[in-house]
Design a protein around this nucleic acid. Structure first.
Length: 525
RNA sequence: GGGAUCGUAGCUCAGUCGGUAGAGCAACGGACUUUUAAUCCGUAGGUCCUGGGUUCGAGCCCCAGCGAUCCCA
């Protein structure tokens, strides 16, 4: 390196330095963007072969190395000295990954690479790899993707390492990585540049892999019980099945107003009329509402319908789905939740709506006048509103947040459940439950209403004081017609997949478990 | 929609009373063939979110805006 060159390199930005090295890589005859790289092993699998590393004495005796724990106290160098002269031998391996850490000792470098199964150290010596490869190695930066061929062994300190015979350049990274071991902290940047967050922030990739495992587990559990996954329409002409404001859109050729679906319910029930006895859909729904740590405008919903079941069978199914998911990610029944804990041991607690109302408000839920007085004391608007709507406001305010759970809240006031079958001995109570965990609604299930005449009547009856947006009752003639063709008595269940993932991965914000949450458009974009 | 807090180097953050813009990591140059966030010597790097205002002078004070986080509705 001449003096003049060194002056030129003064003041170059990290990116300029990387581009300079990129050109050097090209001039050395390598493609800085790499190519297919066959026969590499996953780093996790390579680490699992640590036992194949042996110490071979001069007389040819093969010795097993001390365990990792023993190496903590006795350096390998000392252990080997006690055993006598010899050398380490291990399997020849090929790995590929991102350079995440780099210790340069001149003619010797230690490079940590990482793939999505783990991290491993590379021992890279000038003498060992040869002059030509060494020149390429001088062009490596943190973040670059490389492949390596070498022997799996341990260093003097006992660190399992691949002793490089050859480095293959696979891809240059032009943007410098965030601070090592600190990563990105600004939540906005983490979400906008999720690729950086995933690549560099501790635990992020594992959390999203856990999400995938949970989703797979949910499907496996259901399929194991004979449920069939279907795909319903996401564009609806009536945004039914839930109380939420939809996203509006328009189909040009048919000149037709459409809505992005807010729920999966009504189409799945149509399928039950058609004889699809156990169906589910796990997919995206869209609600044109506020954004919060618990709300993203698009989120993943599971809905399941089981012919000849009821809401009690849905409780069992809910417990199975959650228990299996916990097992799948290798977690225990007792999970951390911030400073608190969640105990997912089954069966989950079951309490009625009225019981909980009484307990947390001290007000008799059957005494409409008392509930009304209590609600107005809490500052709720009570005039001209249906007693059950008022009760529901109070329930959300005073009871839901207080529920630690997991707890099935059962038997809701019928009037706020227009899609639910009533109890046979009490038409004022709907066979519905919601599952709450630390104040968060995770699941919602009914014994499904299959009486077309009652369904039609409930669609037509808007509760006093409830806005269209807050109401689940939106007239859907086609759905009523479907019911006229005979839907079996059935249990139906909805689970908020994002919230379930939050709970199982101890994520306090929905944005930590949605890869690309909705963000305000960036200026100039 | 309201309130609080925040926005400074590629990243993480300091910045006192309003008086020349700071550190660590990363980068660049150098030493080192068994390091563990390696170490050591040296160098460079800034639209202090944006726009106004007050002031002799603003990263700091005031106003407006943009964006974020949390809380409330």
């Amino acid at each position: 390196m001449t003096e003049e060159n060194s002056n030129e390199q003064q003041g170059e930005s990290p990116e300029e330095a990387r581009r300079r090295k990129l050109e050097k890589i090209t001039s050395l005859g390598h493609d800085p963007w790499g190519h297919r790289f066959d026969d590499r092993s996953l780093i996790g699998d390579i680490r699992a072969r640590a036992g194949e590393v042996k110490y071979i004495l001069e007389d040819g005796t093969e010795l097993d190395l001390p365990t990792e724990d023993e190496l903590e106290t006795t350096p390998l160098k000392q252990w080997a000295a006690e055993k006598g002269k010899g050398k380490l031998n291990g399997p020849q391996v090929r790995a590929a990954g991102r350079i995440v850490l780099h210790r340069d000792k001149g003619k010797l470098q230690f490079i940590d690479i990482e793939d999505w199964t783990g991290k491993i150290q590379l021992f890279v010596g000038q003498k060992q790899v040869g002059e030509e490869n060494w020149e390429l190695i001088q062009c490596l930066d943190l973040g670059d993707l490389i492949g390596i061929d070498g022997m799996l062994r341990r260093t003097q300190t006992g660190e399992l390492s691949i002793f490089a015979d050859k480095i293959h350049f696979l891809t240059k990274t032009l943007d410098p990585p965030p601070a090592k071991h600190v990563g990105l902290t600004d939540p906005e940047v983490r979400q906008r540049k999720r690729y950086v967050d995933l690549a560099w922030n501790e635990g992020v990739r594992d959390r999203f892999l856990d999400r995938s495992r949970i989703v797979k587990s949910v499907r496996d559990t259901l399929q194991g019980q004979g449920f069939v996954e279907i795909e319903g329409p996401t564009l609806h002409s009536i945004a039914g099945g839930a109380a939420a404001r939809p996203f509006n859109t328009h189909h040009n050729a048919l000149d037709m107003e459409l809505y992005m679906r807010i729920a999966l319910e009504l189409h799945l029930k149509r399928l039950m009329v058609g004889g699809m006895e156990r169906v589910f859909e796990l997919g995206r729904v869209y609600r044109n509402e506020g954004i919060s740590p618990k709300h993203n405008p698009e989120f993943s919903m599971l809905e399941v319908y089981q012919a000849y079941g009821d809401y009690e069978s849905m409780m069992d199914l809910t417990e199975a789905v959650i228990s299996d998911a916990i097992k799948t990610i290798g977690a225990s029944k007792t999970l951390p939740w911030g400073e608190k804990e969640i105990n997912f041991s089954t069966p989950f607690e079951r309490k009625t709506y009225d019981e909980l109302f009484q307990k947390h408000t001290g007000v008799d839920p059957q005494d409409a006048a008392a509930v009304k007085t209590y609600a107005s004391e809490l500052g709720f608007d009570v005039e001209g509103r249906h007693p059950d709507v008022i009760k529901s406001d109070v329930f959300e305010e005073k009871v839901e947040d207080a529920l630690v759970g997991p707890i099935f809240v059962t038997d809701y006031p019928a009037s706020i459940c227009p899609l639910t079958k009533r109890k046979s001995d009490n038409p004022d109570v709907a066979e519905r439950f919601e599952l709450f965990v630390h104040g968060m609604e995770v699941a919602n299930a009914y014994t499904e209403l299959n009486d077309p005449d009652l369904q039609q009547k409930l669609f037509e009856t808007q509760l006093e004081g409830m806005s269209d947006e807050d109401s689940m009752a939106k007239m859907d003639n086609d759905f009523v017609t479907a019911l006229r063709n005979g839907m079996p008595p059935a249990g139906g269940l909805g689970i908020g997949i994002d919230r379930l993932v939050m709970l199982l991965t101890n994520s306090q914000s929905i944005r930590d478990i949605i890869l690309f949450p909705l963000l305000r458009a960036e200026a100039g974009n």
